[in-house]
Design a protein around this nucleic acid. Structure first.
Lengths: 193, 193
DNA sequence: TTTTGTTCCTAGCGCTGCTAGATTTTCCTG
DNA sequence: CAGGAAAATCTAGCAGCGCTAGGAACAAAA
């Protein structure tokens, strides 16, 4: 038992090490710089070790993405609970969401842009992901009126995602982001009462 | 003169051939299947010929994207001019936009998702792209009120882009898209009068 | 027909994700 | 402590990628 559990623990530690190294490399140099060779070198193991932990590079990205979900959920929660009223909460989570994407573009990439096939709208969705969605939903709830809360939250999320990705991709000038967000919020808070 | 112009014409035809082949390959098998080798084989030339036309693979994608801009602009225009009233126009361009992304995912990828560094918010923006944006803007105008038309159009665009990309990426279930779009439209048409 | 200039291809570089097979290390047994 | 089974790990390599140098083949001019 003892020896087996020690091995499992060491394996888990090494797996965590790989994920952290991948994330750091991605955040400093972008995902295109994260190659299995460089990653192996960073964790001081040979390439095949990576494949004993993960099915492939995509699975490593997915693992990094799951870390990101947890952090995003935390930041959304902080923004929401710090808000004074319902309007402020919706604005807060919106700002926090886009801010997260801007501060951690590589992380955001792995979470929502890359084709990492994590389960999304299914029962096996990562808890951290659904936690983040719940934060959005709670912020949206007071403005939902008779509309379906889940659908409206998805719609708000999509709008934030669009603003974030178009800005990250250089399609929208960054300086005017705050004003665009204000326009969006005006449309989503108007009919709430 | 004659001989030189013939060569230029042939060069232009071959360039068009490359773009078309790249687009077809991308639309049928996705961009990851578009390799310079396969592309060269399709156009029945050797690889280096591609590089005498384009700086690299990214430049080929950018050329395909420009084609896409023109088509999207056309579809948006058709949707807008076919509308009965202002509300219908906004809904029409919205539906047309997302429909385009769903029908031509690879094309949409090249246009708005990949890192192809085409000029966007600058004077040298491709005419077809600004034409498409203008169509959106015309549809948004009646609903802008005192808000800045350009900024509001960007915001509406971002929302559509978010809906389209999250759906394409499997993050949002496709079946409910129409209802999400309806929610978005309700928020963007409400205060127009 | 030879020369000149352009066009185009062959071959190859350094990189990628990934894996088969050999080797080393770890552990249990006598 | 020594020998052997089992597990962990590495070396070496495959097929493919984007891209390019240098030479062969062609067309136009003399």
């Amino acid at each position: 038992m003892t020896i087996q559990s020690r091995r499992e623990r060491e394996r888990a530690e090494r797996e965590k090490l790989i994920i952290t190294a991948a994330r750091e490399l991605a955040e400093t140099e972008g995902w295109e710089a994260v190659t299995t060779r460089r990653l192996a070198e960073r964790v001081e193991y040979s390439q095949p070790v990576l494949y004993s932990h993960f099915k492939g590079k995509d699975a490593i990205m997915a693992a990094v993405a799951v870390e990101g979900f947890a952090e995003l959920a935390g930041e959304l929660r902080a923004a929401r609970t710090a808000a004074r009223d319902a309007d402020d909460a919706l604005a807060g989570v919106g700002r926090a969401y886009v801010s997260f994407a801007e501060r951690r573009p590589a992380l955001y990439d792995a979470m929502f842009r890359r084709g990492v096939d994590l389960p999304f709208a299914t029962p096996q969705v990562p808890p951290a992901l659904s936690a983040g969605f719940q934060e959005l939903a709670e912020a949206v709830r007071p403005h939902a009126g008779d509309d379906d809360l889940g659908l409206l939250t998805e719609t708000y999320w999509a709008a934030l995602h669009g603003l974030a990705t178009l800005t990250l991709g250089g399609r929208l000038p960054r300086e005017l982001h705050e004003r665009r967000l204000a326009l969006l919020l005006a449309r989503f808070t108007a009919g709430s009462g």
